[in-house]
């Protein structure tokens, strides 16, 4: 795994800890913060893209370090739900998804979601006429 996207949930006490600095210096990772919501003194949420530069960095070690620090790690898929019964497979969510995470399967025309592209921006939540998409961030 060379690249991954994770959501980090910081408890209030850890919000001011320089986690990014350690991931870069100690684990050799390229860290791209795609989305962040941190209010000092309160809990915070960060969407990170971590890249181990083709094995030069230690991705597994970095994630274990973050977990040891008390930060809860979630996948993108854990943050977004698409209710398959409610979904009409209409496609109204796809155009506004500038991240390119949503598409229709070219054969079945069912909605596909690619969690490696999602930035949890929530534009799809508003765009879905069926109210089928929920995003927590």
């Amino acid at each position: 795994m060379a690249r991954t996207r994770v959501v980090l949930n910081f408890p209030a006490a850890l919000v001011e800890k320089p986690v990014t600095y350690h991931l870069v210096r100690d684990f050799g990772l390229v860290v791209n913060i795609l989305r962040a919501e941190i209010r000092p003194g309160e809990a915070g949420t960060l969407l990170f893209e971590l890249d181990d530069r083709d094995g030069q960095g230690d991705l597994q070690g970095g994630l274990e370090f973050v977990a040891r620090e008390g930060v809860r790690i979630q996948t993108i898929s854990g943050r977004i739900t698409i209710d398959q019964d409610a979904c009409l497979d209409c496609g109204a969510c796809i155009g506004p998804c500038f991240a390119g995470a949503l598409a229709l399967d070219p054969t079945s025309y069912k909605l596909l979601f690619d969690d490696t592209r999602c930035v949890l921006c929530k534009v799809c939540v508003e765009a879905c006429p069926a109210g089928a998409i929920k995003v927590a961030f």
Binding site: L88, C90, G91, A92, I94, G95, G100, L104, Y109
Partner: peptide, 10 residues
């Protein structure tokens, strides 16, 4: 980018 609002699957 293009996308429909009517469901081709349906």
């Amino acid at each position: 980018r293009t996308s429909p609002v009517s469901s081709y699957r349906m």
